[in-house]
Amino acid sequence: MSDVVFLVTLLGAAAGAGVLGAILGLGGGILLVPILTLFFGVSLPYAMGASIVSVIATSCGAAAGHLTSGLANIRLGLFLALFTVTGALAGASLVGVVPPRVLQALFGLALGYSAFTTVRQLHVEVAESLTADPLAQRFGLDGVYHDQLLDRDVAYRAVRVRAGAAVMFGAGLLSGLLGIGSGAFKVLAMDTFMRLPMKVSTATSNFMIGLTAAASAGVYFGRGDIHPVIATPVALGVLVGSYGGTRLIARLRNATVRKLFLPIVVYLAISMLLHGLGVLK
């Protein structure tokens, strides 16, 4: 493969990952790492380094658009990021103490439950008649966004904030313990537990994943895992793709975004359970 073909193909793949990342609230690692290792023959350390670049580029491109459009709730993102980052710190310090497989099995079960709940509320556009959560009111977590498709302002409430924060802490714990991104868990905590509109959940997750990734980015850089020739097309493609994705999500229903998200949850649930049970190494 010539240099130009390699760079252009990688750019295209990264742009696709950026579009999906912006819509689904993921950093793109779940898509990019297999693409880089299986199709481009990139070694795993470089693929992981490219993945961290992808997470931050998705966050920059998508969150920039989502914050301006009002889909990302900055207060909600910062409030919940406290629990994710604290969880990640706790997880990193527990490496070697807590068996990761136990946590993987637990999270596999939690994801299975989330997948079930997601199927049940697959067609719900915006949850109605929710009781106000005092914690959400105190920290200003409720919000409103203009839905282009419905052509109206959609007011939403965050409920079960404590449960959402606990899931965020757990997601951070897993992230710190296993060195994986946790965009999918963040989206589920907001959508399933806090009953926020799916688009608000994914947009706010896009803002949060950049903060979580920033904490570990220095390590990848210091180890030399961020290869300039791979990171450049990945960053460029993901940044452009994710910014474009923010335009696309405005034209999608919450239910459509949830349907796109469901296969990711099912895949993660099965993968986590199999890892937890020792079937997959």
């Binding site: 580029a57 920059c60 969150a63 920039a64 914050l67 009002g70 950049g210 450049t232 960053a235 940044l239």
Partner: peptide
């Protein structure tokens, strides 16, 4: 929101500009 969004976009754009210039030069 606007201030944070602007920094994210500026940072991302500056980063990509530097990377592109470097890659073309390489």
């Amino acid at each position: 929101e606007r201030a944070t969004s602007r920094i994210l976009l500026l940072g991302g754009s500056l980063a990509v500009a530097l990377m592109l210039v470097g890659l073309v030069a390489l």
